[in-house]
């Protein structure tokens, strides 16, 4: 199947690349990402920007262009865009987290501090997110701006959120606290062995070395890929098969030469 906005309603990789400001700009602080790539006759974003960072021009079917060095990431454009196509991404929030500010028009509104599920452009669960701020702009005619913190690696992936579901709360790997949703996502991204899932999510890397989650992970892989659970091998087993204190691991030197 072809991908791209006109085929599945989601920006393709290349389309995404074409709308992202430069990596250096992200490092400096919040900036708008305008995911509007069609020649729609529309220009509220240009008018909304107090810094003249968005340019459309007289021909209002032109695609908006962002002058990233002028943008301060205030979010007024995101609140005004009738297509809900503008997002503010702040990569400078912390070493590991980014903040995504997105327009939201559903009830009930989330509350600050809520844990929600960050989802991708196609609505797939990606990672848990925390609601940082719920903001109402008077000029936005009711559109609410919700800021969520997400793992930095997903700042170009997460574009909306939903309330947590049961699977998001089900912890499969209890040592590393990895949920069923996270494992399913890894499998959908190509991890089709227990080892692949482990490398992608850390599930099974903890103190019990997968004793309690290995079977569940195999079952999830089987469900997602349609493989028979019997074909899904466990990851390689390694010594020591029980946790052993460092000082007690070594027999006295010379005795086993």
């Amino acid at each position: 199947m072809k991908c791209g906005l006109i085929y599945d309603g989601c920006l393709s990789q290349a389309e995404t690349a074409s709308v992202l400001p430069a990596a250096e700009r992200f490092a400096k602080g919040p900036v708008a990402v305008i995911e509007c790539i069609q020649d729609i006759p529309c220009n509220p974003c240009e008018k909304s920007c107090p810094h003249q960072a968005i340019i459309i021009g007289d021909n209002i079917t032109a695609v908006p262009r962002l002058q990233a060095d002028r943008c301060v990431g205030c979010g007024l454009c995101a609140a005004q865009c009738p297509g809900l196509a503008i997002f503010i991404v702040d990569a400078s929030y912390s070493a590991t987290e980014a903040v995504i500010t997105l327009p939201y028009e559903y009830y009930p509104l989330p509350k600050e501090g809520d844990i929600v599920m960050g989802v991708s452009r196609s609505g797939a669960a990606v990672a848990k997110a925390r609601v940082l701020k719920v903001r109402r702009e008077t000029a936005a005619y009711g559109t609410i701006l919700v800021s969520i913190t997400v793992p930095k690696k997903f700042m170009h992936t997460i574009r909306s959120f939903r309330a947590l579901r049961e699977a998001d709360k089900r912890i499969v790997c209890r040592c590393e606290e990895i949920t069923e949703t996270e494992i399913r996502l890894a499998v959908r991204q190509g991890a089709n062995t227990v080892k692949d899932v482990k490398l992608a999510t850390r599930a099974g890397m903890g103190a019990c070395q997968g004793t309690s989650c290995r079977r569940e992970i195999s079952r999830i892989i089987a469900e997602e890929t349609g493989a028979s659970p019997e074909e899904i091998l466990p990851p390689r087993f390694r010594m020591p098969v029980r946790p052993i204190p460092l000082a007690q691991l070594a027999a006295e030197e010379g005795k086993n030469d």
Binding site: R242, A250, N256
Partner: peptide
């Protein structure tokens, strides 16, 4: 028993391997 190689077992017994 925490490990095995060939005909040898490594055993944590009385606080030592």
């Amino acid at each position: 028993v925490w490990g095995i190689t060939d005909h040898t077992l490594a055993v944590l017994h009385e606080k030592n391997t």
